[in-house]
């Protein structure tokens, strides 16, 4: 799955030169898995405090979830503000848009320091999970 992600990144010009703003793109237009994600699974990943971790920093339209964060933009309307490809890039590696962003890169394993052994060489979310989250976020039109 990581290979697929690298392949996609390379196709989009986001490979080795991704740190160079001149080559920065605003989108990863194609699915990391070649398939559409499942929005129901995506919602579950987003609300999980152990898997997606999203609600530690973001709030969103999840009325059943108490204790949502507010250090990042509200996820409500994310699917209206951003295209599917823009959402995918922002989750895979938001630092390609803003190197100083506090948002972790959810699908990158290089360039990280002192990763705990249990998480080493693993992205926060695998390619399938990324697609599930993207599929759900695109439904947030309001």
């Amino acid at each position: 799955m990581r290979f697929a992600a690298v392949l996609v990144a390379a196709c989009c010009g986001l490979g080795a030169a991704s740190g160079d703003p001149a080559n920065a793109q605003d989108s990863i237009p194609t699915s990391l898995t070649g398939a559409k994600g499942d929005p129901v699974r995506g919602r579950a990943i987003i609300t999980s405090r152990q898997v997606g971790l999203c609600l530690l920093c973001h709030s969103g339209p999840f009325p059943e979830e108490r204790f949502q964060g507010n250090l990042a933009p509200d996820l409500a309307g994310a699917g209206k503000r951003w295209s599917e490809g823009q959402l995918r890039l922002r989750i895979v590696d938001s630092s390609r848009i803003n190197p100083a962003t506090i948002m972790p890169a959810y699908h990158r394993t290089d360039g990280l320091l002192r990763v705990a052994p249990a998480w080493r060489d693993k992205p926060v979310l695998n390619a399938e999970q990324i697609e599930d989250v993207v599929a759900f976020l695109t439904t947030l039109k309001d």
Partner: peptide
């Protein structure tokens, strides 16, 4: 000020830059 870990966060990003905001409920 060093970003570290799988979540690539520095102490400063929470405690200098975002103090007073809520991380989940806290």
């Amino acid at each position: 000020y060093r970003r570290q870990g799988q979540l690539n966060l520095a102490c400063s990003q929470c405690h200098d830059d975002n103090w007073g905001r809520r991380l989940a409920g806290n």
